[in-house]
Design a protein around this nucleic acid. Structure first.
Lengths: 240, 240
DNA sequence: AAGTGGTCTAGACCACGTA
DNA sequence: ACGTGGTCTAGACCACTTG
């Protein structure tokens, strides 16, 4: 089972891959305990330290979770992670939930100079422009303006209803995986229209988030400007 | 030197901190080789494996770099990193420079409930409170309120002049390495005093950044609330 | 050949959670 | 009391780089 030849990869890597494969196959499901380090060591004929190193790498990749005194578990939070990875707004009590979204406008137009520049498009390229409002517990809190190259997202403006989590749609229908994003934040005053939509006084300070979302190849494919009422919410960022 | 008592942190963590402190103090400079794992083990009276685990963590944090057959080196990109890693404000043209700082106030007081809670301190603990203003090209742009536990930073309020980059001071004089931080951003209105200091109209929207800075052990040691005029600057964040 | 980091072992004891 | 992960040791051998 485990190879020990000269040009083979190290033992702990083989074990790491073996464990990952078992999890992928579903031998162990999210939430399950896996056998203890000592049991695995005996089963595989290696020392505990070697199993330990293999498990450590899977813990660092968030595939497994250790709980001292209890055991090692298959992580359950791999899907939630995808949902919240690009969403950094939390309520003041620290809770993080996705807001509901309603589309206000969805139309095709020609990219402005700024939009074309930020999405690396030729001047005059057609884009899809979406405006939507997002609510936490029925309280309108965020206004979003989303700009997409019409060519890449052909037909999206005809969709009868857009899902709340757009990046899943990009992935599923257009084969575009958002992999990273760069955001620029400023404080700004609510315009009359924004004040009305967000149910605040004109001039109320809003947090403006300008995001450029990139694919795996670092191609910019979405420009999104959000303006948020931060009276009861905040933008969260952790620096490591 | 190394403590072995019941409630002390583990050996390898002490060694990790010791190595980090030596690097921070400049005992070893970026690009230098540090002593071999075996030499360090002998010097510190522990086994190679323990030194190895300490070094591994610093490698994962990009402080050290291993080169098989050659040695372990202090990473070269650590100074720039230290300078800008925790500073996310850029000018609208994309340029990132450190602002100049002037201290407005520096005094000792008792922690408020909120301050004590955020720094994990007992109610009534003494703190050092620093207020400073930061200028880009002589334009006042950021007001900072910094709160530190007085016990950890004994004598800091007596310093005749505080450096622009405080985290270097924490490291050099107090052996405290800021390793990560969690930030909460909101939009807020300038108070009268803020408006006067920042040379803007009362009520101008400001970007408020509340940061809790953590050591290697994730102990919170600094609370910093910055209020920024984002007329010509923005807060930058990249999501990977 | 000598010295470095990289892997691996067999065993020990500690800290934690559960029964 | 028992089993789990967490730390630590003392020693071994391998893979790589340099004199």
């Amino acid at each position: 089972m485990l190879s020990t030849g000269k040009d083979s990869i190290s033992l702990y890597m083989q074990i790491r891959n073996l464990l990952a494969a078992r999890i992928g196959r579903g031998d162990w499901s999210p939430g399950d305990v896996i056998p203890s380090e000592i049991q695995l060591a005996q089963e595989l004929g290696v020392s505990q330290g070697t199993v330990r190193k293999a498990i450590t790498e899977l813990v660092e990749k968030n595939v497994l979770t250790r709980k001292q005194g209890r055991g090692t578990f298959v992580s359950a939070h791999d899907q939630d992670r995808a949902l919240f990875h690009f969403f950094h707004i939390s309520a003041d009590n620290g809770q993080k939930v996705l807001p509901q979204s309603s589309v206000l406008r969805c139309r095709r137009k020609t990219a402005s100079r700024a939009e074309a520049s930020k999405l690396h498009l030729e001047h005059g390229t057609r884009i899809i422009s979406i405006e939507r409002i997002r609510r936490f517990a029925d309280q309108p809190t965020i206004l979003e303006n989303i700009v997409l190259p019409a060519e890449l997202f052909a037909g999206l403006d005809g969709e009868s209803e857009l899902p709340n989590t757009l990046y899943e749609l990009y992935q599923r229908k257009y084969g575009i995986t958002i992999h990273s994003a760069s955001e620029r934040l400023k404080a700004a005053s609510a315009t009359d229209r924004e004040a009305q939509l967000l149910n605040v006084a004109r001039g109320t300070p809003l947090l403006q988030i300008e995001r450029i979302a990139l694919t795996l190849e670092n191609t910019p494919v979405e420009l999104r400007i959000s303006r948020c009422n931060t009276a009861r919410h905040y933008y969260e960022n952790t620096i490591f």
